[in-house]
Simulated assay, not measured.
Amino acid sequence: MLRKKTAISIHLVFWVLFIGIRFIRIGYAPAIRLQFPGLRFFDVSYLVITALVFYINYFFLLPFFSKKNPVIKYLLPVLISYVLFLCIRYGFEQVISPAVWGYRNYYGTPPLWFYAYDNLYYAFPAVVISTIMWVLIHNIRLMEENAQMKVQQASAEIKFLKAQVNPHFIFNTLNNIYALVFNRSQAALPAIEALAGMMRFTTYEAGAETVFLTEEVQYIDNLIALEQLRHEAPLHLQFKKSIANEQQLIPPFMISPFIENALKHGMVEDAASPVTIVLETTASRLTLEVTNKISTRHKDAVGGVGLENIKRRLNFYYPNRHRLQCATTGQIYNVYLQINF
Rank of each mutant, 00 (worst) to 15 (best):
L174A: 04
T329L: 06
T296F: 02
T329D: 06
L288E: 00
V165H: 03
D221M: 13
H138L: 01
I19R: 02
P77R: 13
C326T: 13
G27K: 13
K299T: 14
F239D: 03
S256G: 02
F258A: 13
F160V: 01
N320H: 14
N119H: 12
F171C: 04
F114W: 15
L249Q: 14
F114G: 00
A99N: 03
E215V: 11
I56K: 07
L112P: 03
Y178M: 12
E193R: 12
V53C: 09
L249A: 08
V100N: 09
L76I: 14
P319G: 07
R297P: 05
E209Q: 15
P252Y: 04
Y103Q: 11
Y117G: 05
I140S: 00
C87E: 12
F201T: 12
R104S: 15
F64S: 12
P274R: 02
A233D: 02
F18Q: 10
I310N: 08
L189Y: 14
D270G: 00
E260G: 01
A301P: 01
L324I: 05
S273F: 07
I24L: 12
E246M: 09
L195M: 14
F182P: 01
N146I: 11
I170H: 06
G20T: 04
R141G: 00
L47A: 03
Y107L: 12
N175Y: 02
A116I: 10
F169Y: 11
K241T: 10
A99R: 15
L263N: 04
Q148E: 11
H322L: 06
W134L: 00
E246D: 12
P252M: 03
D43G: 08
P167C: 13
E215C: 06
A194S: 15
D43P: 05
W101N: 07
Y115L: 11
S81F: 00
A262D: 09
I10A: 06
